Simulated assay, not measured.
Amino acid sequence: MSGKSISNRKDEFKRQPSSFREIISVDHPVYKPAKGRYWLYVALSCPWAQRTLITRALKGLAPVIGCSVVHWHLDDKGWRFLQAPNGETNERHWFNIAGGIISATASSSTPVAGVDNNAHRLLIDGTNEPHYGYKRLSELYIRAESNYNGRVTVPILWDLKTCTIVNNESSDIIRIMNSSAFDEFVSEQHHQIDLVPLHLEAQIAKFNSWVYDGINNGVYKVGFAKSAEVYESEVTTLFQNLDRLENHLEEKYTKLEAEYGKNNKNKILARFFAIGDTLTEADVRLYPTIIRFDLVYHQHFKCNLGTIRDDYPYIYTWLRSIYWCYGPFQHTTDFNHIKLGYTRSQPRINLLGITPLGPKPDIQPL
C-alpha cells in the first residue's frame, strides 16, 4: 500500500468472501449442465453482477440460463423484487436473443428526480421473482440454507432442481459460463468464444489480480473509508493503479498505431483490448468498474483526483470501443440503475439521496 501508513485498521474497507462456491460440469455429482435448470439473480447497478450478465450474453446463454433483476434501490431490508400483476411474468424479458436485460432506453429517458425509491415499473425498475414469488433476495439465501446469517449479495447462480445456490461469487460464475459445460445448448459461433484462452491464461490472471485489488475493489476502499487518513491513502493508491492501466493501454495502442497507421482507427480498435488481440475475461472484469467511474465513483465515492473521460484518454478510448462495438456490454449497462442504485442506497455516504444529473452524456460517442 502506497501513501501514508495506516494506523487505524478498523477504518479500512474489507470485502467479505462469498459463501457458495460450487461449479457446474458434466462430471459434477449434482450440478450438471441443462437448459432451463439454472437461474441468475442480479442487480443492474452492481459491477460484480454485470460481469456475469456480459458473459451470459457473449456465450449465447440467455435462452439457457434465465435471469431476474432486483429493484435498483437497496433498502434497510436488502434487495427486493417487484411484484407482477396477477402473478404474470414476461418470458420475452428473460430469454431475449440480444442478452440484454432491461431496456436502457426506457429507463434512462426518465429524469432521475422524478423517480421515487419505491418506483414499480416492471421490467424498468426490476423484475418479479417468477419461481417462488419471493419478495426479497434474502428468501433465496434462507431457502438454500435455513440458518444462513451471512451477507445477502448479488449475483446468485441458482439451481431450480435442488432449490439452492450453486455459486454467489462473480469470478466463479463467469468461469462456469465460459467453460464448455453448456456448449450443447448454444450455437457453434458461441463455442468459439473463449474468454480465457490457454495461451493468455497467465497474463489474464496477473492482470485481473492487480486490477481487482487496485481498481475494481479499490473504488470501494476509497468510498467506504471511515477516516480521512485511510481515504487519502486509498484514493492515492487507486489513481496510481489507473495510471498503470493507462500506461498499459497506451503502450498497446501505440504499437497498433505503428502497425496500421494513425488514421486506421477501425483496425486499431479491432485489436485494442486489455490483454491480447481479442476480447477476454480481462475486459469483462474491468469494464463494469470503468463504465461506473465518472458516473458514480468520481463524486459519490470521492474518487475525484480525475475523471476517465478527461484524464485517461487511452482508458476512455478502450471503454468507448467496448461499449459501442460490443452489444453485450452496452445492453447490460443501465445508467439510471447505476446512478440511482448507488446514490439512493447508501445514505451514510449520500444522506439526502440526491442523484447528480451529470456527467453528460453518460458515455461519449466513439
Rank of each mutant, 00 (worst) to 15 (best):
N241E: 05
K226Y: 09
W48G: 03
G214S: 04
E257A: 01
D194T: 06
R21S: 09
S170M: 00
A98S: 15
H248S: 09
I174M: 01
H331D: 15
A205E: 13
L40P: 02
D283V: 09
G218F: 06
Y148T: 03
S170W: 01
L279P: 03
D310M: 12
D125N: 09
F182H: 00
Y323M: 06
N90I: 08
E229P: 02
L74W: 07
V42M: 01
A113S: 13
H28A: 11
P33D: 05
L198K: 15
Y314M: 12
L319K: 11
L295G: 11
N336L: 08
L58S: 09
N117R: 07
T55K: 11
L245C: 00
G87P: 07
R244Q: 12
L122P: 02
T332M: 05
D334P: 09
K226V: 03
R344Q: 08
V186C: 07
E250Q: 14
S146K: 15
S345K: 01
H71F: 06
V166E: 00
G99P: 03
P29D: 02
F329T: 09
P328D: 05
K77F: 09
R244L: 15
K32Q: 15
K59M: 02
D75A: 10
N208W: 00
S45N: 10
H300P: 02
L286A: 13
T153D: 03
S68C: 08
Q203A: 14
P365Q: 09
E184L: 11
E88C: 03
N147Y: 05
E22I: 00
E229S: 15
R348H: 15
P29E: 06
S227W: 05
Y141H: 04
R51T: 11
V219N: 10
E169C: 02
G150N: 08
V154F: 00
K161G: 03
T278R: 08
A228V: 10
G358N: 14
A57N: 08
F207W: 07
F13W: 10
I24F: 12
R37A: 06
N168D: 10
R175H: 12
N96W: 12
T289E: 00
T278I: 07
L53A: 09
L295N: 09
Y141D: 01
S179K: 03
K77N: 15
S5D: 11
T52F: 04
N263L: 13
K161W: 10
K221D: 05
Q299N: 13
N208M: 14
P29W: 09
R136I: 06
Y297Q: 02
K10E: 12
A202M: 14
G66A: 12
I354N: 07
